[in-house]
Design a protein around this nucleic acid. Structure first.
Lengths: 203, 203, 203, 203
DNA sequence: TATGAATGAGTCTTCATTCAT
DNA sequence: AATGAATGAAGACTCATTCAT
C-alpha cells in the first residue's frame, strides 16, 4: 500500500483542504460523526468526494484535523492570551474576561462539545488530544496564578474546580437551557465562589 | 399491518426483555450507539436478533428504554431519597451523603454520560428525558432546601451551581482522569464552596 | 421429516381450519400474498400462529386451499347451475342470468382476480388449477349449447370470446372503474354481440 | 441529508441506468416483484448493488421507471400510430393492423401483464399510471372513430368492449393457452363482432 | 390441541472508500 | 489534481417456520 495522502503545496489546494476541514468539522459537530457522510462533507466544501481522500486518510481523519484546528475554541477558549499579570484586586475582572472570552469564542454549534466528549471515551486519539489540552490549560492557569503569588497549596484541585464552575456557567449561558435562569446573578455567584476558593490568596 | 411490539406477560419473557435492555444499554454506553449493532446486542443478551424486534420497535427503542431504566443512575444518582429534614449544622453531612450516593450508584460504564449527552442534542426524545429529569432534580433539591428554611433568593441559580460542582467532583472521582488529584482535598473544597454559596442561609 | 399436517376430525377443529382459510384467503386477496403475513392471518382467524402450521404445510398452502374453496366464486361464478335447457328465443334471458350470477357471486374483494392471475404464471399449482377450471367451464358451456342444438362449428372459439365478453363486462360493473360508463347500455351491447356470435344458431 | 438520486449525465451512466431498468423490469415481470431482489437486479444488469441506489430511490422505483418505459408495450401496444384516417370499408384492415401491432409489440415476458395488474390494486402510483393510460387509449380510439364519422352514440361503451375483445384475442394468441384453439377463426370472429358493434356506423 | 415466544436466514439500503477518466 | 461513478461489505429489520410449554 502506498501512502498517498498528499500535503497540498499550492495555495488553492491548501484552501481546498481547509474548506474540507471546516465543512467536515462543522457538519460533524452539528449532526454528529455518524450522521455526517463524506458526500455531504464534500458537497458542503464544494469539492468532489474523491478529493477528500487525497487530503485525508479517511473520514475520521477529517474529524481529527478539525479537532486540532477548532478544538480549542470549543473546549478551551480561555486558554488563549492568559499570559497576564494582574492585581489581586482585579481577580474579579480577570474572571469576567475569561468568561466573556469563553462565550465569545464558541464558534461551533452547541452539539460539538458533547459530541466530541462522547468520542473521547471510545477513541484513543481524541482522548489523548483532549486530556493533553485540558492539562495544558490547567497548568497554564496554575502558572498564571503562581506568577501572581497564589499559593501552590491545593492549587491543582482549586483550578480544576474553578474551571468546572466557569465551564458550567458558560454552557448555561451559551445554550440557554433554562429560561428562568438569571445569568447575571449566576455569574456573580460563580465569581464569588471562585474568590471563595482562593480566599486565602486574596486576603 | 399487525402491531407487533409485544409487552411480555410471562416471567421468562419479562426477564428476556430486561436482558436485552441491559445488554443493549451497556453495549451502547460502552461502545457508542453507532458502534453497537443489533446482532451484538442479541448475542450479549443471549437471544436471537428477531426477538429484539418483538420487544422493541427498533434499536433506538432499546436505548430509550435503557435510558429510562438506568438513566437516573447515570445522570441523577442523588435524586433518590432526598425527602429529608436536616439540621443546618449537618448540611455538610448531607452533601457528603449526596456525593457518596452519586458515586456508589454509578452503575454503568464511564462512557454513558457523554455518549448520552451527545445524543441529547441530536435527539428530541432523549433531550426531553434529560431536561425533564434535570429540572426534576433541581426542583427536588430546591424543595428540600426551602423546607429547611433556606431563602428562596437566587435559589435556582445556587442549586444549579451546586449541582454542577457535585457533578464535576464525582466525575473526577469516578473516572480517575487525573492521577495527581487529591480527592479528599477536592471534596472538602467543593463542600466548602457549596457552603459559601449558601452562606446567608447557614449563618 | 414426519408429515405432521393434521386433517382435523373434530367439529371445532374443522371450523378452526375453515376460519384460517377464510381469513388467509381474504387477506391475501385484499392485500396480496407478500403483503400478508402469517401472524395477521392467525390474528384475523382468531387463532395462534402455531396452529396454522398444524393444518397447513406452509403459508402457500393456505392460499391454495383458499383458492380451491373460493376460487370458483372469483373466476367462474357462472359455472354453477348451468345444466339447463332453454328455448333459443330465451338465449337473451340466459345470458342475463349468467351475468347476474357472476356479479352476485363475487364474494371476495376486487384484488383477488389479478392477484391470483399474477400467480398463475409463477406458480404451477395455481396455473394448473386455473386452466383446469377454465377448461371445465368452457366445456360446460359448450355442452349446454350443443344440448340446445347450437352448431359445433367454431364453437370453442365462440365460447371463449363469449366468456371474455362477459368477464370484461362484469369486471367493469363490479369494479366501477369508469364513472361515465353506462352499464345498461354496455350490457345490451355485450348481449347483442354474443347473439351476433351465434347468429347462425339463433336464426 | 443529501439528495442522492443522481440523474446520470454521461453516456455510460445513462446506459447503465437503462440496463438496470431493463434488467429490473424483466426480472420483476418474469418472477414477480417480491421474488426479485436487488442483488439479482444488479447482477443481471452487470453492476453493483450500490449503484442501483444512486439511480433509483428504491427497488420500487426501478419498477415504476420500468413501467413508464415498457408499460405501453405491455398494456397498450396499439396506442401508437393511431392518428389515421381510414375508409370505412377498410375498418376490417385497421382492426387487423391493430391486432398485429399489439402482438408484435409484446416485448416483455408473459407474466408482466398480470403481475403488474395485481399491483394496480395495491399500489396507488401504478394504478394511476394504468388508468391514465387506459383512458388515454380509449379516448384516442374514440377520437379516431369520431374523425371517421362514427356516431358518438354509446361510443365509450363500444370502444371499451372492442378493446376488451382485442385484448382477449391477443392474449390468447400470445400466450398459447389453449392448444386446440384456431387463431384465424378466432380473429375473424372477433373482427366480425367488432363490426357488429359498429354496424350502424358502417352501414 | 393450542399457544405465542423464539429463531435466523434473507432483504433492502447506506456509505466509506476506490478507481477510471 | 480533480471528478463522481462504482464498489461491496455491513447493518437494521422482517417474517415464515419451529419449539418449549
Amino acid at each position: 500500500m502506498i501512502e498517498n495522502i498528499r500535503e497540498p503545496k499550492q495555495q488553492r489546494a491548501i484552501e481546498k483542504k481547509e474548506k474540507i476541514i471546516e465543512a467536515g468539522f462543522n457538519l460533524i459537530c452539528k449532526n454528529g460523526y455518524y450522521n455526517t457522510n463524506t458526500a455531504e462533507i464534500a458537497k458542503e466544501a464544494g469539492v468532489s468526494t474523491g478529493i477528500v481522500y487525497q487530503y485525508f486518510k479517511d473520514k475520521y481523519d477529517v474529524l481529527i484535523e478539525g479537532l486540532e484546528k477548532y478544538g480549542d475554541d470549543i473546549f478551551f477558549p480561555m486558554l488563549k492570551n492568559t499570559n497576564i499579570k494582574f492585581d489581586k484586586k482585579d481577580f474579579d475582572k480577570l474572571l469576567r474576561q475569561m468568561i466573556n472570552h469563553y462565550i465569545n469564542n464558541h464558534k461551533v454549534s452547541n452539539i460539538a462539545h458533547e459530541e466530541i466528549m462522547s468520542m473521547v471515551h471510545s477513541d484513543r486519539r481524541i482522548a489523548e488530544y483532549y486530556y493533553k489540552r485540558e492539562l495544558e490549560m490547567t497548568n497554564s492557569l496554575k502558572e498564571i496564578l503562581l506568577n501572581n503569588n497564589f499559593s501552590e497549596n491545593e492549587l491543582f484541585e482549586k483550578v480544576h474546580i474553578m474551571l468546572g464552575l466557569i465551564d458550567n456557567l458558560c454552557h448555561e449561558i451559551i445554550y440557554h437551557k433554562h429560561s428562568d435562569m438569571n445569568y447575571d446573578i449566576m455569574t456573580n455567584l460563580v465569581i464569588d465562589n471562585i474568590k471563595n476558593l482562593f480566599k486565602n490568596d486574596l486576603v
